[in-house]
Design a protein around this nucleic acid. Structure first.
Length: 463
RNA sequence: GGUCCCAUCGUCUAGCGGUUAGGACGCUGGCCUCUCACGCCGGUAACCCGGGUUCGAAUCCCGGUGGGAUCACCA
């Protein structure tokens, strides 16, 4: 069975790049009917915070990425890590080193100056030192031969062992270091498929060496290309909104973000729009591309519009509520809201836009936009009067009834529909941009419609 | 600098030896129309360069160039 994992370090919010690798792991696990494990890599106690843990979990939940196990905390597993370090020591795969950090740094500098290769020179390798205060444990990297990463995405990547230094696996304070901790955790958790950003490829040979030294099976690796900003460098804050949560606040649908993120670096023929289930059904490691991709907010926006349009209105009601609340609109998740959404879903690219467009549906009176109010002039007086009279006779405001009412007014005034519709639009919505007026009138309560029309009429008469 | 990865329209990509190099976003002309959208029809725009291999290369090989990642007692 396929077992994947997502191991964020809690040193900040979940950004879109991290969300993407989480997504790949989650999708692959779901597609293969395997398991997906969440592990918090918090061994850097300096930078890790509980707030970050909370933020990451919240973002994953919003995206709908659920995990089968965890969250595990790496910091609570140091005993296990230490046991394995001891094994390495016992089997001759690691040794104590008491070189000062300064001495090692000088070796690197010298190496860099000589041939560009900065590595620890193995001074303590054969000394057979035992533990002393201040000493670290280093892994004994084979001096000859090669280590090859059999990568599913990138083909085989060959590294010369001689290029790899004897890296530290245990700090002088006794705590394990990243490369050791991940490998031990992945081994003990049964992780057999590792999908991660390709900024990890240079770590991979070290980790493979560790797997072998520990007598464990090497997992399948899939290094996915990075996500770049518009300047083609690695994505960071200066590229704009990068946290997953920021997109929720800007009115994006999780399904749209997911669709966009997966599609960035993965493809399924010409298909651009995917539902969550389609993604699970069609996702595969083979179709992950090999080159880095630029994050394009424009395309994400377009995709969000598509997902809003495709979603059943009643499914949008709940997520829309907070945005309405922010605009001080008193709405509830009911049939009325769904009808309102139905008139707006084709003209809203985000939930923020939709909330703005929905505001006029609520409350007794409309707030007139100053420019729009100019449509409420003498020319609109007669058609409005006639329309009000016609509407009063109507039992229901069905689209067909409304049409005949408007037609009658058009005929008796000799005006085109546009000349009548625009003042009505302003009267009903306060603005010049809105859903079709027949649509609006089919949704708005008759009482509200009539009072708003009369209000507009009074406004003109008072001019 | 060392090591490693990558290279099709501005961007995301399809292509897996023979295509008028396809789709999407963006930009744009038009249609539809009660505003704005949606939708529909059309346009713009790409195989990094140079050598090979082959009857034939965007596709395979080599070199160059360009871009990216990484070189911690961070993860």
């Amino acid at each position: 069975m396929i077992i994947t994992r997502f191991p964020p370090s809690p040193t900040g919010y979940l950004h879109v790049g991290g969300a993407r690798t989480a997504l790949f792991n989650w999708l692959y696990a779901r597609h293969m009917k395997g398991r997906f494990i969440l592990r918090i890599e918090d061994t850097d106690t300096e930078r890790s915070t509980q707030a970050s843990v909370d933020a990451i979990l919240e973002a994953l939940e919003w995206l709908g990425i659920d995990w089968d196990e965890g969250p595990y905390f790496q910091s609570q597993r140091v005993d296990i890590h230490k046991t394995h370090i001891q094994t390495l020591l016992d089997t001759g795969h690691a040794y104590y080193c008491d070189c000062s950090q300064q001495a090692v740094e000088e070796m690197r500098k010298a190496g860099m100056a000589a041939d560009g290769k900065a590595k620890y020179d193995g001074t303590c390798r054969e000394k057979g030192l035992s533990r002393t205060p201040g000493s670290v444990v280093r892994f004994k990297v084979p001096q000859f031969g090669t280590t090859v990463v059999e990568d599913v995405v990138k083909r085989n990547i060959v590294f010369q062992n001689s290029d790899i230094e004897d890296f530290v696996v245990q700090r002088s304070d006794g705590t394990p270091i990243y490369n050791l901790a991940v490998v031990v955790d992945d081994i003990t958790m049964g992780i057999n498929t590792i999908i991660r950003g390709d900024d990890h490829v240079s770590n991979t040979p070290k980790q493979i060496l560790l797997y072998k030294a520990l007598g464990a099976a090497v997992p399948t690796f899939a290094h996915v290309p990075m996500v770049l900003g518009n300047d083609r460098t690695r994505l960071s804050k200066r590229h704009g909104a990068m946290s997953v949560t920021a997109y929720r606040e800007m009115g994006y649908l999780p399904d749209a973000l997911i669709n966009y993120l997966v599609r960035l670096g993965w493809s399924h023929g010409d298909q651009e729009f995917f539902t969550r289930d389609e993604l699970i059904e069609k996702f595969s490691l083979e179709n992950i591309g090999r080159s880095a991709g630029v994050f394009d907010p424009e395309k994400l926006l377009a995709l969000n519009a598509d997902h809003i349009q495709a979603a059943p209105p009643e499914k949008l009601a709940e997520p829309l509520l907070p945005f309405l609340k922010e605009k001080a609109v008193a709405a509830e998740n009911d049939g009325f809201l769904s009808k309102v959404i139905h008139t707006l879903n084709k003209r809203s690219k985000t939930l923020v836009e939709m909330a703005a467009g929905a505001a006029f549906y609520f409350g007794e009176k409309v707030v007139f936009d100053e420019k729009a109010a100019k449509n409420l002039n003498q020319a609109a007086l007669e058609p409005l009067r006639q329309l009000i009279a016609r509407l009063e006779e109507l039992e229901t405001f069905s689209e067909a009834d409304l049409e005949t009412a408007f037609k009658a007014v058009m005929e008796s005034t000799g005006l085109k529909l546009g000349k009548i519709a625009q003042p009505v639009r302003v009267a009903l919505t306060g603005g010049t941009v809105s859903p079709g007026i027949f649509e609006i009138m089919a949704v708005l309560p008759k009482g509200i419609i009539m009072s708003r029309l009369r209000e507009a009429l009074r406004r003109i008469e008072g001019q």
